[in-house]
Design a protein around this nucleic acid. Structure first.
Length: 537
RNA sequence: GGGGGUGUAGCUCAGAGGUAGAGCAACGGCCUUUUAAGCCGUAGGUCCUGGGUUCGAUUCCCAGCACCCUCACCA
């Protein structure tokens, strides 16, 4: 059955509805109860199997399953909150029975009826009124497996979302996490701001920008790679604690950890330093954990265990064990145990991550020694190591090579949440130098699951040094990715910027960690993909 | 950009050098307590695209395209 044919059949049903004087696309449908509200309302009634209560309900949602048997039909209706079984009988529906016959999987309907239980005990809304709210013209994916083709899932995220409820959960968590971070900062006296996405000069990070053009002004503009230089201007302006939840755009590769547009929370705090920023990371992540991962993990353990015992009964211990293994039940149990003991333990790809404050503080040089076996100051050894691990280092600045070796050898070992500090100053043009060792920057990066999660500085507020840093070319970094001179930013610093700590945390990656999502595309609703040629039909 | 994998019905997937298979969905029939409902029947395909080998290719070979994984750039 071709797609066109399936669609044509549904169009015929739609037309049949219209023929009957029914609006196939519905209208306002007030006083809808969610499926969970119905469950909650039913609970105290203690309805026995086979009984109906006096309680009436009105629910709307999409038909996920439909079982028609002669003059009786059951439908599973899915709404945002969950799902509920509906019962329809020809006797009770009367003339509307013929409407039900025109309903397909995927249609959005509303129904009124009394809440009861079937003989098998399933909570059921026995409908006496059926309202078509939107006829679906395309067949939904397979009802058991849902949509699994990853390409299609991202291209047609709307289908992914309505067929795979777990996907919706991830984005609810994302929303809660962002809100927790926002609340946390507001509570600390921060002011949320918006700074330009379209920037005449890009800066604040080492990345290639997207370029665009403004017609009226006839100037090139860049989509921001970072809001940093604008947020610091606000410190000059006397705003002492500012943050922005910032969509940044970097014209770089795409991977499971990189999307060309991604979300960061970036914050600046006057009279603080990078030590304070470590505490801010711990605070924000704790808040995010408590609002999302905590209950999700406990529920997940229960859900896996329920399924395991079901499999044990139906398919035997082997299938159950395989499922438990595949779902990382052991790790989830350990995480739940940690939570019970007051720790912030989450599971990411089978690994238990402990986000409990304080996170370990690790010296960059120590880690380099531990995993690369070289001293950060021993330039010859570092370059030999670079060759060992296949990094092209000729013509590159020492500090750049050091950092590339660090990324290649150390990063993946930083599985448990940790702060790494003591970065080479030469690769940190916006960071204040260590007062006793100018080769070291007052910078840390936060790591977890082998990913960089955040980046923070004691901010450089000396305009003279900043100007020098802007002008210095560090060999080994592409000309495009170099810090670009921003005269106005220097001018701002010349007016005086208070000493400050600044921090950026990758929201997408944090959501990955707290929702056990293996790819950044799983936590971005519409990740960038090559567009498909337009459809002809 | 390098390496590996995938591409077959609307969806989830088998399969083989000789006119293409299942389950779900669809259509028709039976069915008033189903639970991924069941039973009987029907229909549905450019086997990603292009070239090559072959009597014959959707299958083998080459190239391309898309996606996934991985490495590199980067957060």
């Amino acid at each position: 059955m071709s797609e066109d044919h399936l669609k044509a059949q549904r169009i015929r049903k739609r037309d049949a509805l219209i023929e009957m004087g029914i609006d196939a696309y519905g209208r306002r449908f007030p006083d809808v109860m969610s499926t969970t509200a119905v469950r909650k309302a039913a609970q105290p009634l203690n309805i026995q199997p086979g009984q109906r209560s006096e309680l009436r309900g009105r629910v709307a949602g999409r038909i996920a399953l439909l079982r028609v048997m002669g003059k009786l039909a059951f439908a599973t209706l899915r709404d945002e909150a969950g799902a509920l079984q509906f019962g329809f009988s020809k006797a009770e529906l009367g003339e509307q029975w013929s409407v039900l016959k025109l309903i397909d999987l995927g249609d959005i309907i509303g129904a009124d009826g009394v809440i009861g239980r079937t003989k098998t005990g399933e909570l059921t809304l026995w409908a006496d009124n059926l309202t078509v709210l939107a006829k679906s013209l395309r067949p939904p994916p397979e009802k058991w497996h849902g949509l699994t083709d990853v390409d299609l899932r991202y291209r047609q995220r709307y289908v992914d979302l309505f067929t795979n409820p777990d996907v919706r959960d991830v984005f609810r968590h994302r929303s809660a996490i962002i809100q927790a971070i926002r609340d946390c900062l507001i509570r600390e006296g921060y002011c949320e701001v918006d700074t330009p996405v379209l920037q005449p000069i890009y800066g604040g990070a080492a990345a290639r920008p997207f370029t665009t053009h403004h017609n009226t002004l006839d100037i090139n503009l860049y989509l921001r790679i970072s809001p940093e230089l604008y947020l610091k201007r606000l410190l000059v302006g006397g705003m002492e604690r500012v943050f922005e939840i910032s969509r940044n755009f970097r014209n770089e590769g795409i991977s499971t950890r990189h999307n060309p547009e991604f979300t960061m929370v970036e914050l600046y705090e006057a009279y603080a330093d990078y030590q304070v920023m470590m505490e801010r990371v711990e605070q924000m992540v704790s808040a995010a954990f408590n609002t999302s991962a905590r209950t999700a993990i406990l529920q997940r353990v229960e859900a896996i265990e329920r399924e395991v015992s079901r499999l044990e009964k139906e398919k035997g211990g082997e299938a159950a064990a395989a499922y438990a293994q595949e779902q990382n039940l052991k790790a989830y149990r350990r995480a739940a145990e940690g939570i019970a003991n007051g720790r912030l333990t989450a599971v990411f790809q089978g690994e238990v991550l402990d986000f409990t404050s304080p996170w370990p503080r690790r010296q960059y040089a120590d880690l380099l020694h531990e995993y690369a076996g070289v001293a950060m100051t021993d330039v010859q050894a570092v370059r030999r190591k670079a060759e060992d691990v296949g990094i092209e280092h000729t013509g590159k600045d020492d500090a750049v090579v050091v950092n590339e070796v660090f990324d290649a050898t150390v990063e993946r070992h930083l599985v448990q949440p940790a702060f790494v500090f003591g970065y080479p100053a030469a690769i940190c043009p916006l960071t204040r130098q260590h007062p006793e060792d100018p080769s070291i920057a007052l910078r840390f990066e936060a790591f977890a699951a082998g990913m960089e999660l955040g980046n923070a500085y004691t901010e450089l507020n000396d305009p003279a040094i900043q100007e020098v840093n802007f002008k210095r070319r560090v060999a080994g970094e592409g000309a495009e990715t170099m810090a670009v001179m921003d005269e106005d930013f220097i001018t701002a610093l010349e007016y005086g910027m208070p000493p400050a700590g600044g921090l950026g945390v990758g929201i997408d990656r944090l959501v990955m960690l707290l929702t056990d999502s293996p790819s950044i595309r799983d936590v971005i609703l519409f990740p960038l993909q090559r567009p498909q040629p337009p459809r002809t039909s």
